[in-house]
């Protein structure tokens, strides 16, 4: 199958993720959308790896997974601490600082 189709899928997933970050209000869901964007990048890497016939892209996909896992650890810690002190994970409620 033509690898270009996987790239279209990756772009589509990335766009869904980016849209989700912009329109969703729950910090956890926003964060999940970021993860979707990272996974879309992974798909693109693997598709390009197949296209070019070298392994770089697949290696990067592993690194991205590790980085995403580290990001989950840090992100959930921050979001949970916010939730515990406010009883809400909405990004709209977090507005102590304004222009």
């Amino acid at each position: 199958m033509n690898p270009v189709n996987y790239l279209y899928l990756a772009a589509l997933l990335f766009t869904i993720g980016a849209t989700g970050v912009l329109i969703r209000r729950n910090a956890i869901v926003v964060f999940m959308c970021v993860e979707l964007m990272l996974n879309a990048c992974n798909l693109a890497f693997v598709a390009f790896s197949r296209l070019h016939g070298n392994l770089d892209g697949q290696i990067i996909a592993f690194f991205t997974m590790v980085v995403a896992a580290a990001e989950v650890v840090v992100g959930l810690a921050i979001i949970v601490s916010l939730f515990r002190s406010r009883h809400s994970a909405s990004v709209d409620d977090a507005s102590l600082m304004k222009l």
């Binding site: 790239l7 990756a10 990335f14 993720g17 980016a18 970050v21 910090a27 926003v30 964060f31 970021v34 964007m37 990272l38 879309a40 990048c41 693109a44 890497f45 598709a47 390009f48 296209l51 070019h52 770089d56 892209g57 990067i60 991205t64 990001e71 840090v74 992100g75 921050i78 979001i79 916010l82 990004v91 977090a94 600082m97």
Partner: peptide, 25 residues
């Protein structure tokens, strides 16, 4: 501040990564 920095930072690094994917391609 940490939540804002984290969410926006992660959002920006996802864009960076997609840019890297396209350049690799």
């Amino acid at each position: 501040a940490a939540v804002k920095y984290f969410l926006l930072g992660a959002f920006a690094s996802a864009f960076t990564l997609f840019g890297i994917a396209l350049l690799y391609g």
